[in-house]
Design a protein around this nucleic acid. Sequence first.
DNA 1: GCACATGATGTAATCGTTTACAAGACGCGA
DNA 2: TCGCGTCTTGTAAACGATTACATCATGTGC
Lengths: 341, 341
Amino acid sequence: MDKRAISIRDVAQAAGVSTATVSRALNAPGRVSEETRRAVLEAVKATGYSVNPAGRNLRQRRTGSVVALVPNIANPFFSAILAGISSVLRPAGLNLLIADTLAGENREGPVRDYLDRTRSDGVILFDGNVSPTALEPRAGVETPPLVMACEWLEGRPLPHVGIDNAAGARVVTEHLLNLGHRDVAHVMGPPENVLTQTRAEGYRTALAEAGLPCRDDWILPGDFSLASGARAAEMWLALPDRPRAVFCSNDEMACGFISALAAKGVSVPRDVSVAGFDDIELAQHVHPPLTTLHQPRRALGIDAAKLLLDLIAAPELYGATHRIEPVELVRRGSTAAPGDG
Amino acid sequence: MDKRAISIRDVAQAAGVSTATVSRALNAPGRVSEETRRAVLEAVKATGYSVNPAGRNLRQRRTGSVVALVPNIANPFFSAILAGISSVLRPAGLNLLIADTLAGENREGPVRDYLDRTRSDGVILFDGNVSPTALEPRAGVETPPLVMACEWLEGRPLPHVGIDNAAGARVVTEHLLNLGHRDVAHVMGPPENVLTQTRAEGYRTALAEAGLPCRDDWILPGDFSLASGARAAEMWLALPDRPRAVFCSNDEMACGFISALAAKGVSVPRDVSVAGFDDIELAQHVHPPLTTLHQPRRALGIDAAKLLLDLIAAPELYGATHRIEPVELVRRGSTAAPGDG
DNA sequence: GCACATGATGTAATCGTTTACAAGACGCGA
DNA sequence: TCGCGTCTTGTAAACGATTACATCATGTGC
């Protein structure tokens, strides 16, 4: 048994042809004769050869992998999306790399690292808060195609996959209004986040359409975390005239909100209706189960990966392509008409 | 501006040295004179050079990446573990690849694909149900170091990181016994799974130690899914003498169990105490919050990655190393003394 | 019978690094 | 002064694939 792994040379020798022919037989079967193709395939089987990606990548100036940059790997919101991405990438022969933008001190680091043709063939970026300079072209560094997913960068036309957040927020708010509520509060995400802003906009639009004023003191701060939802519940409790419906900008805050209320003996939805956004797994398991807006996470991942593959194949073809996945309101137990219980 | 990205040659030229010297200046600074080292670093900065991993990998016969093989990427149980892995890998200059063993038809595919030195520098395998043949050495293929995490392969001495599942299950069962329960049922995971078997063993040990018989009709089948937990609840309801305590082999089933009971008007923990295993995020948010055994998931990921790095550095040094993380019982609302409520 | 297109294959360059080996300079002890 | 180890550097050979180009045989149209 040899020490070195078998290479294309061994196959060539076994088949009695040159390495060029072996390569052609495997990658462009139409360009060799039927006879040699068979001989090569047989030699491949006999030797147990499989191509060495490092060699191929070097020659072809590719990396064979696509990187998904998420704000935080530990956030389970992304797992279904990553599964979708993986399901597209694997058949295409590409590896899925993951990294988080929060790793280390500066948010830019990982983005800069991977936004480089020698490091990845393409990037799917889930973080809309990277500094704009991180995406600037740098001298001597070719940048691979980039797809924004879920979040996006304001004022920068980049390919994007996501949902219509404003419309979604509007649907949720209208659901509360349709139940008969006239006083609807809103718990916001982190202020600088595009999702926060867009969802708040949808909320305001729905109120305006219904001819209702938008009261500033009914807009409560948050940061998308469970804890901030609980804090918002405290603020809500302290309001002189508590609105009987609350739309939280994401599910985690809605869950935190509900559980903090439960601890204070306030009943949902009898005393207050609470709705969320995202339809994370937790949403259907809290008590009461959460009314929320469903994001098709696996489909989003699949879309993002497909779009990226298209861009890799033909970088110039696409301007700022957008793919918007449809969303759906999921009515569960956490919302009800003001009188009900 | 040149078309081709800048390579080590450009740096060599700018610094007036050979490429070998540039390489040494960057990778083994002690082996060049202080003077040339400075010149090289300056040239690097001036040109904006960064090493091309494909070239390096080819020469060094490495891939620069480690792959985590999970049964199912979409399962959020793994996200915190992956975050832990990533936090160790990144500083070490390694990429984290993820793939699932369920992708495609055969469970072996991805394992075979990545268990190859030309494909990955190391593998962390979370699936204990891969066919043993998938790990067999193959002619012409060098296998990279492999670390089993969470699950393991019976009768095969492989490096492993995880917890003591038998002891954990025993602690949970003892908790129920200490509350005063004498009748404790058990909901099992998929029969062929090592975790299922080991946790069941811990359950039986605890019963035996307490001098209690282990009744076969109180051992209910399941498959680790929420739905199977709900089905187990139906079976429990149908039992002639319902045991007043149930230990579910994982949290998902415990949650399914509880919510199915709630639908039937059975109250937890008043009518029956329910405990789980894992302490997934959901556990603290169901109603009532679940008593369970906490697995330090991030720490497990960190451990697995560190062990793998050690193995990569010195493959021969380690036999079947095991690293066992301590676990902890988390008492929440789902368990109580038989009389309470 | 000739010019030329077509198809199949081999030769060798190339991708960008690292590193074995060699070589020159220098200092030091005998 | 000579021999030898140590430092520093350069030359060139890998690593393993793909592919531009050349070559040669064969077939086709006139």
